[in-house]
């Protein structure tokens, strides 16, 4: 919305963060590079969830597209010997978007918990199929070819850095495009759909079509995230589509809030950090830490952590 961000600093901020990653990356320990890459991958999925959440929809099955992205990347390596990260992300996004385009005709008719439940069922269908498909490794999953970019295999010391910078660049570009989309009339329709769909229809717009578009964009973003996570981890398995994975993405999105396209990435970094630290301190209570954080955010910061930063006057 034009006056939510009076002077929009999102694009320079994205650029600055990307630059900071490129410059400071070599100084970071390997585990931090890995943590950031996974956070970027999950942030992409969460960005897609944010688009849906702005329209009042919570998908309990976004892991479907994360998994499609991951398995597309895996299949490219296994069946076509392709290990290029960018190509994997592009193909992951395309495959996810294609599936979403078809399923969207169904899903765009649903609202509230039924949207969540149906998306969860669809995601579990993929889980059920992958867990039993031997050519794709059943429940064990398959390994991903070592990452390359533009045909070049980075030396071992620099692989994590290269993957992170590639992922960050793609994420920054995607966030900028989503930002642009949010400013179009169709993007601005989201809170209106959430508030009052009857009015939207009588205004001459199709809420269903708008939701379908958001669903496809969200899937493409999740597909990129899945491919990036696959190449960073070097392994994929059906758990990528399990409902608890979707739960993680929802967690990140709620934690972050919907006020900025940068929020999901911040949320994802925070999530991965809480999880890593909590797991280190006490491996048996990290879920409890996450649960309590989520509860506190829902109750005390219903618009997410980002609302602490944005200065929109209370109406």
């Amino acid at each position: 919305m034009s006056n939510i961000t009076p002077r929009d600093r999102t694009l320079p901020m994205l650029g600055a963060v990307l630059l900071a990653v490129i410059v400071l990356g070599p100084l970071l320990p390997k585990w931090a590079l890995f943590l950031l890459t996974i956070a970027i991958a999950k942030g992409m999925v969460s960005l897609g969830l944010m688009l849906q959440l702005r329209a009042g929809l919570v998908s309990f099955g976004q892991a479907l597209y994360y998994c499609i992205g991951g398995y597309t990347a895996g299949s490219l390596g296994r069946f076509f010997d392709i290990s290029d990260m960018l190509l994997q992300m592009i193909c992951g996004a395309s495959a996810a978007a294609f599936v979403a385009l078809i399923l969207g005709f169904l899903l765009a008719r649903y609202r509230g918990i039924f949207y969540g439940l149906l998306s969860m069922a669809l995601s579990m269908i993929l889980y059920g199929l992958l867990a039993k498909s031997e050519s794709l490794g059943s429940t064990d999953g398959i390994n991903i070819l070592p990452s390359t970019i533009f045909g070049i295999r980075p030396v071992q010391e620099w692989v994590r850095y290269v993957v992170l910078v590639t992922g960050c660049s793609v994420a920054a570009l995607a966030a900028a495009l989503v930002q642009r989309y949010l400013k179009t009339p169709l993007g601005q329709l989201s809170p209106a759909i959430k508030d009052n769909e009857i009015r939207v229809e009588y205004m001459g717009a199709s809420a269903r079509k708008a939701i379908h578009v958001k669903y496809v964009i969200a899937a493409a973003l999740s597909g990129i995230g899945g491919a990036l996570a696959a190449t960073a981890v070097g392994h994929i398995d059906p758990d990528m589509a399990y409902w608890t994975t979707s739960g993680e993405f929802i967690f990140i999105t709620i934690l972050a809030g919907t006020r900025s396209v940068a929020a999901p990435f911040l949320g994802a970094i925070l999530f991965e950090t809480i999880r890593t630290v909590a797991f280190d301190i006490s491996p048996n209570t990290w879920q409890m830490t996450l649960g309590i954080s989520l509860l506190l955010v829902i109750v005390f910061l219903p618009e997410g952590l980002w609302s602490l930063f944005s200065r929109r006057k209370a109406a």
């Binding site: 509230g112 048996n284 649960g291």
Partner: peptide, 23 residues
């Protein structure tokens, strides 16, 4: 709160109870 928000609240309670069981 909305149905979906209550769903998320029970999700966070579910996460908490998972670890309560382990404790």
């Amino acid at each position: 709160k909305e149905e979906v928000v209550i769903l998320l609240i029970t999700y966070s309670l579910f996460l908490i109870l998972e670890d309560v069981i382990k404790l």
